[in-house]
């Protein structure tokens, strides 16, 4: 309880340069502390309000590489039912040798298939076509600038795994 408490509402808080510097820096420090504390709380509140992100994913076993020859493709169904076409495009036992694309056309939901001679995925419903990377190159998907969804793949000890949305609920 120091006696320097201002009596008059508008009295300056201190006198002299040193004092004014102290006052200013303490004000700044206070503002910083308040912003840090309540700002983080606001961030927490924001995270609370923002809808939960995409469902957790899980790595699933697909095949052992010995049974998956270069140039071939295999069909895969994710736990939530999405159809995926996995192709092998290289002999190396590396992630880059494989590509997993959802085989459902983003236009109206037909199943696309791989046309090796054309090097493209083709959707027979409305003649949509996609390049090997899943980017639409003609037809309605091209006009809408759509792509086939892609799934991450990894090779581990000669086994191929795919990252897919984790299954939800009791039964799959």
């Amino acid at each position: 309880m120091t006696p320097d408490t201002p009596r008059v509402p508008d009295a300056p808080d201190g006198a002299g340069d040193r004092r004014s510097f102290l006052t200013k820096s303490s004000t700044l420090f206070m503002a910083g502390g308040l912003a840090a504390g309540y700002g983080t709380f606001a961030h927490v509140a924001g995270r609370f309000l923002y809808p939960a992100g995409p469902r957790a994913t899980t790595w699933m076993f697909v095949a052992d590489l010995a049974h998956f020859a270069d140039g071939t493709s295999m069909k895969y169904r994710t736990p939530d039912g999405a159809r995926v076409l996995i192709t092998r495009r290289g002999t190396a036992e590396a992630d880059a040798s494989f590509k997993a694309l959802g085989s459902t056309c983003p236009h109206l939901g037909c199943q696309v298939h791989w046309e090796p001679q054309q090097q493209r995925f083709f959707c027979p419903c409305h003649n949509g076509a996609f390049n090997p990377e899943g980017v639409a190159i003609s037809g309605p998907p091209k006009e809408a600038a759509q792509t086939l969804p892609s799934f991450p793949l990894k090779v581990d000890k000669g086994l191929l795994y795919i990252e897919v949305p984790a299954p939800a609920g009791e039964e799959v």
Binding site: V44, R47, F48
Partner: peptide, 9 residues
């Protein structure tokens, strides 16, 4: 259990 920071709020 599910909402981010839900338990905290």
């Amino acid at each position: 259990d599910e909402v981010a920071f839900g338990w905290f709020i």
